[in-house]
């Protein structure tokens, strides 16, 4: 598999570390235990396009949101995490 890192270009799978589903968002501090439990443990078992977190560990250390088809491994989109790259101070 090959992933096009927005910062480094097309690179081989071995440079990346997989985390998993990028959909769940970390609940607010006051969201309660159930919401956090869902965030930590509950995942959809997607057959098809899935948004996933990948880390360019062997490259620029950017966290990426990769849209991958779990049936074909085809990657349709790669975007950097909101805070990837230099900090956007004042942005």
């Amino acid at each position: 598999m090959r992933i096009v890192c927005p910062f480094c270009g097309e690179r081989e799978l071995g440079e990346f570390t997989y985390l998993g589903d990028a959909k769940p968002a970390r609940p607010a501090a006051d969201a309660g235990e159930d919401a956090v439990f869902d965030y930590v443990y509950l995942r959809d078992n997607v057959a098809g396009a899935m948004s996933e977190h990948w880390y360019h560990s062997g490259g620029c250390r950017a966290w990426l949101k990769v849209t991958r088809n779990t049936l074909t491994h085809e990657i349709s989109a790669v975007e950097p995490a909101a805070g990837a790259g230099a900090a956007k101070v004042g942005a």
Partner: peptide, 21 residues
């Protein structure tokens, strides 16, 4: 290594609004 990756995740994904490198 894992902590560096974890902290980068916190910085880039969870708390992108913070001014930290």
């Amino acid at each position: 290594g894992p902590v560096m990756q974890h902290l980068e995740f916190c910085r880039q994904v969870l708390f992108p609004e913070l001014d930290v490198q």
